[in-house]
Structures are given as C-alpha cells and as structure tokens.
C-alpha cells in the first residue's frame, strides 16, 4: 500500500519533462519493465498466488499430522509451511528445490511416496511380483485343471456342466428368444 502511494506522488514530477526526454524516459522505463517482466518468472516481485503454492503443497505431506497433504491441512503449523513455500517460490526456487528442502529438514516422510532409491525399491517391487506370481499360479492351476478334460471327456460330465436351475432358466429364455426370431 505504501509503495503505491509513493509512486503516485512521483508521477507529476515526470510530467514536467520536455517531450523528447519524456519519450526517452518512457523507452528506458519500457525496456526496464520488459526486463523485469522477463525476470519475474524467476524472481517475482509480486507474491506467488495460492494456487501456485497449493500446486506444490499438494505433493507434500504434513510433517506433523499423519497422511494429510499440506495443501489442505488446517493446522497453524501447516499454514506456516505453506507461507514458507510461498516465500521460497518468491525467491525463485523450483518445485524440486522446495521438495528437497522439506526432505532435508523433515525427512522422506513429507513426500507422497518413498524416494526411489536403495532399500525403497523393495517397496515398489513387492506388489507387482506378488500379483504376477498370483496370476502365474492361477494360470498354471487352470492348465492343470484343464488337462484331465482331454483325457476323459465323457458325456456324463458334459451333462453335469450346465448344472444349475439358473442356467436352466437362462436356456429357456434363450429358446424363447430364438422362437421369437
């Protein structure tokens, strides 16, 4: 607020300049502005918006409350952490730098997933191995079950195949459908 007030007071002074000088000044100002706009992507003078903060906070986990993403955690501590993110963004830090900072200070638990390094690979490998193992076991069981069929496919078993009233009912419906056609 104060800054804005000072700027408006200065404005009349520039009005007193001759036109040529005024243009020259305006050009320099424009160039400078352009320069600052280009720079602002890295070092902004305006504070980063809540959305920019949340976009990073979303992927960080509150170091004190369990399993709460930082962007939605209502505690005072988390509000301060969000302000910290805002400050670091204003300093021009990248998302990765901010994440690294949080990991360095509060441990790997602030990340949504364990870092993919060292013993943590175990974490990522076990579920797919188990599931694929289960799938393999199931399919080998299928094959084992199906083998005897070739050897002794007698008609008695075929008859036993459609075994429930359920299917009996479906069959009748099917017949009915055929008749209609």
């Amino acid at each position: 607020m104060k800054d804005r007030g000072r700027r408006t007071k200065k404005a009349p002074a520039s009005c007193r300049l001759p036109i040529a000088q005024y243009f020259a000044f305006a050009l320099v100002l424009a160039a400078l502005t352009g320069f600052f706009v280009a720079q602002s992507a890295r070092a902004q003078e305006t504070t980063p918006s809540d959305d920019e903060v949340n976009a990073i906070a979303k992927h960080l986990y509150c170091p004190v409350c369990e399993n709460t993403p930082l962007d939605v955690c209502p505690t005072e501590a988390c509000r301060q952490w969000r302000e910290l993110i805002r400050q670091m963004l204003a300093e021009g830090k990248s998302e990765q730098e901010i994440k690294d900072y949080f990991v360095a200070n509060y441990g790997a638990r602030v990340l949504a997933e364990p870092p993919r390094a060292g013993v943590n690979w175990l974490f990522y490998l076990v579920p797919p191995i188990l599931i694929l193992g289960g799938a393999f076991a199931l399919f080998s069981a299928f094959r084992a079950w199906m083998k005897p069929k070739v050897a002794e496919s007698d008609s008695g078993r075929e008859a036993a195949g459609a075994s429930s009233s359920d299917d009996e009912y479906v069959r009748r419906i099917e017949e009915e459908l055929k008749k209609r056609k």
Binding site: Y61, N67, P69, G107, A108, R109, V110, L111, A112, E113, P114, V119, N120, F123, V126, P127, L130, I131, G134
Partner: peptide, 24 residues
C-alpha cells in the same frame, strides 16, 4: 496386496530402518 503393502510398509520402514515414510 497393494493395500496391505501400502499400510504395512511405513510401519516396517520405521521399525527396521528408523525412518518414517509416507505412502500416499
């Protein structure tokens, strides 16, 4: 399996390596 592993891993990590991890 995925769920069980996700719940158990942070506990196991804290127990065996002493570091807490989050599985989100």
């Amino acid at each position: 399996v995925v769920c069980f592993w996700g719940v158990i891993s942070p506990l196991a990590s804290e127990l065996f390596t002493g570091t807490k991890i989050t599985v989100g």
